[in-house]
């Protein structure tokens, strides 16, 4: 089955990103296709490479990046939600006159159309949020 995944909450405060990760990983291991993972609302905060959780805790951001590299996942961060919350890639940082970017490997910034497209293309769009 072809799945789209939507993550609507940030890391650590809320378990939505953990659950989405475990669902995505399990779906891939069961042979399903993950068309795209779309990060919205505070979910965009999963995409900053500057998170430094305690060493005995899981690193939610690194875990997504590693899963993306292993399975060639498309991790998309909503640009409007990202701009509100200070998630920037190199191009956006330049365009907005900011002194640095913070997007983690494997993530890309794009528009809400990517979410709608996932809804249209996938057999199931699964939303993880509050």
């Amino acid at each position: 089955m072809k799945f789209g995944i939507m993550v609507n909450e940030g890391p650590y405060t809320h378990e939505a990103s953990d659950t989405a990760y475990h669902f995505t990983k399990a779906a891939l291991e069961a042979g399903h296709e993950i068309f795209r993972v779309f990060f919205y609302h505070d979910g965009v905060n999963n995409a900053t490479r500057y998170t430094v959780p305690p060493q005995d805790d899981r690193n939610i951001q690194v875990r997504w990046s590693e899963l993306a590299e292993k399975h060639n996942l498309d991790l998309v961060v909503c640009i409007a939600a990202a701009q509100r919350r200070g998630i920037l890639d190199e191009n956006e940082a330049k365009r907005q006159g900011k002194d640095g970017d913070n997007i983690a490997p494997g993530f890309r910034i794009s528009g809400l159309g990517q979410l709608i497209e996932a809804g249209i293309q996938c057999d199931r769009l699964v939303v993880f949020g509050d």
Binding site: H41, A80, G111, G113, I116, G119, D130
Partner: peptide, 19 residues
Amino acid sequence: TIYALESLEVVLIGAAFEQ
């Protein structure tokens, strides 16, 4: 919370997809 506002943003963008 911001959910209502950002939901509306999705609805407006999604409207262009003729679903």
